[in-house]
């Protein structure tokens, strides 16, 4: 299980600062932050600790289990973006 960033994300990156496992990308120090559409959580790395959800100023991060059907799409979106990044890296 993992947390998921929703499309309302504004790239504030407060979540990046608190993540204990650095699974949120792109971090402000990483390439691609300036042009990123939104940030995403790598579900393979996420440890479900909830720190990001607490830190998010606009409540744009939710537990995977709590996604409404309409938002389920963001689960795959986060995973896809994570996968794309790992392929580039």
């Amino acid at each position: 299980m993992a947390y998921v960033i929703l499309g309302t994300c504004i790239n504030d990156a407060a979540c990046v600062d608190v993540c204990p496992v650095a699974c949120i990308h792109p971090a402000p120090a990483e390439a691609g932050f300036a042009t990123a559409d939104m940030l995403y959580i790598d579900p393979q790395i996420c440890i479900d600790c909830n720190a990001c959800a607490e830190a998010c100023p606009i409540n744009a991060i939710v537990r995977e289990q709590d996604l409404t059907p309409k938002l389920l799409r963001y689960k795959t979106l986060n995973a896809e973006m994570a996968l794309a990044r790992s392929k580039v890296a």
Partner: peptide, 10 residues
């Protein structure tokens, strides 16, 4: 005029 809200943070 570039970026989203959070781009202003860094």
């Amino acid at each position: 005029p570039r970026g989203v809200i959070g781009s202003n943070k860094p």
